[in-house]
Design a protein around this nucleic acid. Structure first.
Length: 651
DNA sequence: GTTAGGG
DNA sequence: CCCTAAC
């Protein structure tokens, strides 16, 4: 089917702060929208056109920001009116500790022709308030019919704000197809050009949906280098109160997982005045579960699932994906309140600060109220952004590499380059670009049953990284990263000066089909802030962290002493430093331990727990069960010490 | 904020 | 692990 989707181009790139969009229903699509249709155009040309637009903008933005950041303030260009000058500080890229850093330095070169093509595609005169919608058909080597319907909408009101939304969807007619959807949306609103504040919020979420209803999350993140801050300035009256409120507030991620924190742990710890990681985490967790987050689902998602087909697909998938992680379900689930989800990075401090600092009071306010016009001197930084919407149909026979590339192309067209796409399927990074999706297990026919066991797909071949790649087959603009950890395609701006922002190339990583969150993200270097984004998807499930025998022992020990009704104490006693273990986790673990101890060893899974420990679990459980019942309303139970335990065991 | 329990 | 009710 020829899907018609709007391509709500959202990332204005470097124009200014981004703010959440109002519900589509109230968004006006009005007058300054122009529709252009040309089914004869080549998809790439179309993309190129879009990219060209972006490039133009980015170029101007980059140049002005780099060399004449402040002098450009009064640029004659219309766009410049909105563009905000940046502080040097703000310009500093975030000190992310990700492996992508190396990649970010990678600046692929693009032929001048390419650029020209891009630039040529869109008259500069149309930069403003133009909405284009084009439908194109293009035949790929696979004789696929690719339909693209792109609508680029950019509306802006002079000196007030900019709103851009983009949605791209393409689909082919091939029966077997993988329908991926990457959603993203961002809006930018910048206030004037005075040395004031502005705020910026961006959303970053994406989902991939295959034709059989596979629903996965994809994250598009900006890499360290691209973590450029966009201080906003405006002439609004200073609001001391708000200012104070927002001060020192930074929301870079909604990921309450360790993964997110690790990277900045050191930094936060080194700041005495800042909450300790554990505290942050705690707060973060609260944030994560906060109603705020839940109340800010993306509008886009709604659209996605509102379509009858989409819903069907989704539900069908849901039905057959019990075995899968539920993390992907969360997004949908949370989207009840329909609104827009977005992450906000508020940074009043140095850009070097970790983005993990949670906004305390501010968060809620900024997120909820979009108190844009009220908070002076607040600098927000964009840690991530959302790609409006992207539908991509890829035949099963397509290679993983081609999938990545396709996404890169599409997204790149939107963002203007610097995109890296990785594929994570069932928690594993699919590095072998040569493999077909089918081989990788990303099949339409994927049997849910296979989800529970190692799929027949061939093991990821290590040589893929260093081995010969299909790079030669890649389009000019797409270059392969030589980063060992990533074989994502990187598409960067054509020329240095074309960098999106001064030296800050926006590198984004999209994690495609990722039914389950990457398992170990420990070396957060492996997966940059992206995951955060993933988690950014409102309340994303935390990554699973099986208890080690050591932890189990500590837990047993504590429970023996404290009983089973004082999880908070247990936490403090034995897991004080285990930030990722909440007392609820401990309680849950105990629950499973008791269960595990009650079943036959054959039925147990995971890392085996020494019988000795399980015995202790049963003993303690039994003891405290009785004890509690007895102590009901009485004096606190006596700790189950070794002696008493032995007594019980002996009895 | 904690607990307890179902999912 | 998540989510909630209940305290």
């Amino acid at each position: 089917m020829v899907s018609k989707k709007r391509l709500g181009y959202g990332f204005s790139g470097y124009r200014g702060p981004v703010i959440p969009r109002a519900p589509r229903s109230i968004r006006k699509r009005g007058p300054h929208k122009k529709l252009v249709e040309d089914s004869q155009l080549c998809a790439f040309e179309l993309l190129a056109a879009v990219a060209g637009k972006l490039l133009l903008e980015s170029e101007s933005s980059a140049s002005s920001n780099v060399a004449e950041a402040k002098s450009q303030l009064g640029s004659s260009r219309d766009r410049n009116e909105k563009r905000q000058p940046r502080d040097d500080k703000a310009l500093k890229s975030e000190s992310f500790d990700h492996g992508s850093c190396a990649e970010s330095a990678f600046v692929p070169k693009v032929s001048v022709e390419d650029r020209n093509l891009f630039n040529k595609g869109i008259p500069q005169a149309e930069n403003d308030q133009v909405v284009e919608q084009t439908a194109v058909h293009v035949s790929s080597d696979f004789q696929q019919k690719l339909d693209c319907d792109i609508k680029l909408g950019i509306s802006e009101e002079k000196s007030l704000d900019e709103n851009a939304t983009c949605k791209i969807e393409s689909s082919n007619f091939i029966g077997e197809s993988l329908n991926s959807k990457v959603e993203s949306g961002s809006e930018v609103q910048s206030q004037d050009d005075k040395n004031r504040i502005g705020h910026l919020s961006m959303a970053n979420t994406s989902t991939v949906n295959d034709s059989i209803g596979e629903y996965v999350n994809t994250n598009v993140l900006s890499n360290p280098e691209s973590s450029v801050k966009f201080p906003l300035y405006r002439d609004s009256k200073p609001d001391a109160l708000l200012k104070k409120c927002y001060n020192n507030v930074k929301v870079g991620t909604r990921d309450d997982d360790e993964n997110s924190f690790r990277c900045n742990k050191s930094s936060t710890k080194s700041r005495p005045l800042r909450p300790q990681p554990s505290i942050l985490r705690h707060r973060m967790r609260k944030m994560m579960t906060s109603k705020y987050w839940r109340a800010t689902p993306k509008l886009m998602d709604y659209e996605l699932y509102s379509t009858s087909e989409g819903m069907k697909t989704f539900y069908r998938y849901r039905k057959s994906m019990h075995a899968r992680e539920r993390c992907e379900q969360a997004p949908l689930k949370k989207r009840k309140l329909s609104d827009r989800s977005f992450s906000v990075a508020i940074d009043q401090e140095q850009s070097s600060d970790s983005i993990f600092n949670l906004p305390e009071k501010a968060s809620g306010a900024s997120i909820k109220g979009h108190a844009k016009a009220k908070d002076p001197n607040v600098t927000f930084s964009i840690k991530s952004f959302k790609v409006p919407e992207l539908y991509i149909d890829v035949p099963e026979t397509a290679t993983v590499g081609s999938l990545k590339r396709t996404v890169v192309d599409a997204v790149a067209a939107i963002l203007g380059g610097g995109i890296r796409v990785g594929v994570i399927y069932q928690g594993k990074k699919v590095r072998d670009d040569q493999r077909t999706l089918q081989q990788a297990g990303i099949s339409q026919c994927a049997n849910p049953d296979n989800l529970d066991r190692p799929s027949p797909r061939s093991p990821i071949s290590p040589m893929t990284h260093s081995g010969v790649s299909n790079a030669s087959l890649d389009p000019p603009l797409v270059t392969k990263s030589d980063n060992v950890d990533n074989n994502e395609y990187i598409l960067s701006p054509t020329t240095p000066d074309n960098k999106l922002t001064d030296g800050a190339v926006i590198n984004s990583k999209a994690l495609i089909p990722a039914p389950a969150p990457p398992m170990n993200v420990e070396p957060l270097a492996a997966i940059p802030a992206n995951l955060k984004h993933k988690r950014s998807e409102m309340s994303q499930r935390r990554t699973r962290r099986p208890f080690s025998v050591t932890e189990v022992e500590a837990l047993v020990e504590a429970v023996e002493t404290l009983g089973t009704g004082r999880w908070r104490d247990v936490k403090m006693r034995a897991f004080e430093d285990a930030d990722h273990r909440t007392y609820v986790d401990l309680k849950d673990k105990w629950k499973t331990l008791v269960h595990t101890a009650s079943i036959s060893p054959q039925q147990r899974r995971g890392e085996p727990v020494p019988h000795e420990l399980l015995d202790r679990v049963l003993s303690a459980h039994s003891y405290w069960s009785q004890h509690q019942s007895r102590q009901h309303g009485k004096h606190p139970a006596d700790p189950l010490n070794v002696d008493s335990r032995e007594g019980i065991l002996g009895a």
